[in-house]
Design a protein around this nucleic acid. Structure first.
Lengths: 192, 192
DNA sequence: TTGACAAGAGAGAACGTTCCGTCTCATTCT
DNA sequence: AGAATGAGACGGAACGTTCTCTCTTGTCAA
């Protein structure tokens, strides 16, 4: 079968992403990616010069996908609080999906603690963007201290994800929703 | 220099533990452990038959140490709520330590997602024990639904740890303390 | 007190495997 | 014709692990 270069790249990225996410990046060798993708060795290396590059691309595209999914999930939300709630609902839904292994971004920071690693940098950048997004929504919703609340929401969000992945349960998801709602109630003024 | 077998074992475990924790388990090879410990190859393998065994021993002893530290930190606590607060204070303190890399247990579950792996099992067991401990304290403190509160406290605790490690900040520590206090205030009856 | 002995430590070679990455070459599609 | 692909050999390094061999040390019988 013949694919365009772009299709090939995307296909490899999909396959590699699934493997990296489910088994862990370091546990997956390039040979496995190549074999699973059904692609020639040289084909992969033409698209991604090194494994680090592939890993970074995996995280970046995954985060892009996540933003797209968030945009869709928040499209119908009437206001900032509803958008935040949509984010949590989306995460809650992910956690109930079989094969859930937590936040890919956090897993990468755990596997690549070296701050100089490009994948680590991409992970940190993503988390920062999410926090900024939360803070903006909170400000718009009338929070007097949006940065503080955003940080706390992120603690709740990530804590539930890690726990759900580690314990293979989704009860942390329920706890997450309740904690977030409680925090929003305490911080946000009642809608007019 | 000559050491007893027990001393050697402990020494290897200390060295391996530092390396595993700071760089990640999979990123550290046995040669590095052997070299850093200044020990002969055969000496290590006489104490730990495989790397998996070493990793599992690392996690188990680390968790034992953690319980010991918790016991010390809670020794002077006048009641169950103070004991819980001591746990959070201890974690808060760890997070401010240079070289902090998050919860070793969670890092292991992230690096070894395979549920059959003994280190993974040890990690899950530890998290379960902590949750049970929290639940017991809460029940003693008069919480009407201690399991639920314990689950939420764990979400807060682990979320802050992961975030602090990923972002190399300790502000999640402050958020953690505040969230925990707020939750305890809401759940626990005022002391008589 | 001496001396033999077992246990364990040290040094390091070597094994087979896996890893990442390079390369060649025939084939296939446009 | 030309560019990209599949198949796969290949190299060098790192991996986990086994092995041999020497040397030190503590123990215990003679």
């Amino acid at each position: 079968m013949r694919r365009s270069a772009e299709e090939t790249r995307r296909h490899i990225l999909d396959v590699a992403g699934d493997l990296f996410y489910s088994r862990g990046v370091r546990a997956v060798g390039m040979d496995l990616v190549i074999g699973t993708a059904g692609v020639a060795n040289a084909t992969l290396y033409r698209q991604f010069a090194t494994k680090d590059e592939l890993v970074t691309a995996y995280l970046v595209t995954r985060n892009e996908d996540w933003w797209r999914r968030l945009r869709e999930a928040t499209a119908a939300a009437p206001g900032p609080r509803a958008r935040i709630e949509a984010l949590f609902a989306l995460t809650r839904q992910d956690m109930a999906t079989p094969g859930y292994r937590g936040c890919a971004t956090l897993n990468v920071t755990s596997e690549f603690p070296d701050e100089g690693h490009p994948a680590h940098a991409a992970a940190v950048a993503h988390k920062t963007e999410v926090q900024t997004w939360l803070s903006e929504q909170l400000r718009e919703a009338g929070d007097a201290n949006p940065d503080d609340t955003a940080g706390k929401l992120l603690v709740i969000l990530d804590g539930a994800q890690v726990l759900a992945a580690a314990m293979a349960t989704d009860t942390p998801g329920d706890h997450m929703i309740q904690l977030a709602e409680q925090l929003l109630d305490a911080r946000l003024p009642a809608p007019a």
